[in-house]
Design a protein around this nucleic acid. Sequence first.
DNA 1: TGTCCACAGGAAATACGGGGGT
DNA 2: ACCCCCGTATTTCCTGTGGACA
Length: 415
Amino acid sequence: MENTNVKDKIIKNMDTVVDNAVIINRRYLDDEQLIHSEQLEVLEEIFNANVRDYEIREISSHFAPILRNDHPMHLALWGKTGTGKTLTICYFLKLFSDICKKRKIPVWIEHLDLSTPRPCFRALNDLACLLNVSRKYKRGVSLEEIMLKIESALAEYYGHFILFIDEVDNVRTDKDNFLAFLIRRLPQAVPSKVILVFASNRINWADNLDPRIKSFLKMNELIFKPYDAVDLQHILKIRVKKALHPKSITPGVIEKIAAMSCYEHGDARRAVVLLSSSAHIAEKNGSRITTETVDHAAQEIERDKYVDMIRTAPVQLQAVMAAVVLCIRKMHKATVDTYSVYDVYKNFCSKASVRCLAIRAFRDLINELDIYTFIRARVISKGRYGRTREIVMDLPSELADKIYNTILLNFQMKK
DNA sequence: TGTCCACAGGAAATACGGGGGT
DNA sequence: ACCCCCGTATTTCCTGTGGACA
């Protein structure tokens, strides 16, 4: 009897979820889950909608000389994150290699991805791996040897060699060395026609380069502007079509997401994230995606940002944040002063076996938390009774708890 | 109006840590 | 393996200050 009841309940519940399905194909809401051909398919549609039309035209005219067997300059792409630098150039290079294949023009295209920072040695090592002349992270090998290996890989190749270096500014130490090799030495050492394509989100990236290299570097520059609302609408519509139930989205939602994203950052990836979490919320509530859902999703993302930020923050900053939360809880007051938080902090440090900083450094950390808007700390004068900083936390208490728990979790991991 | 509290925050000194050279 | 150098984190020291209070 009871069993059937439970069974019925489960079935009924599942049916309602299926009936209310908002998301048909979850994978199209998360780029990382898409396989390569699907990514290209999405890209194709985006570019067909005339998004990044100007940039593609510029890039293609930059590479056009290759078709006449001429040697184009290097190319630099600037633009903030999520403006499609990488996608656009990858898409273009793929098409371009097809064209060249048809016309029997030899091109060799490689994509060196430096999205995580690494020193010169590892960057060159990665390049050598791409060219299949070295295994990963060989230690105890001199830079020179790696360079020679790279040169030997290209020694017999007389065609065009296009090397796309994503996020160049991530080469930390000895950036000069890395670039001197690519820009000056390599083209002279090998018979290939080397064309470098740099992408970076810092426009002044080349400024603090060794002037000798800089003067050698002849390149075209192309700036990717942040997407405008219309572009974002195109991009979002494609995702909606692929991923969502057509009836699950109310009018105006795409426009709203596009407008919000355009106003805040112009980052396509983050716009898709907003769409995705709106869809998830709607599905959980068994409703359609409305503009209110979008607001909720935006709030949730904002919260996650705080939690994420504190999780990856330095240990000391986490400890101070925890102390602030604890202190406000303990005092049952809206505002606390530096010294009472400092006492709680000292206590917390000894419990969590973290080194305790001096008061002066502590003050700076409080300021830092203020800058990141975790707390508000303003100096008030109490006249005869001196001056203090008044510390308030105007995050919702639920979020404060979440932050505090995250920090605790972080400290337990370390023990 | 002047005093003086109790801390803020600047500057200099010092400790620390990572990378490169030998 | 060792040292040196340099940039960053932290400490030590110290001066500055808004306004309540007498």
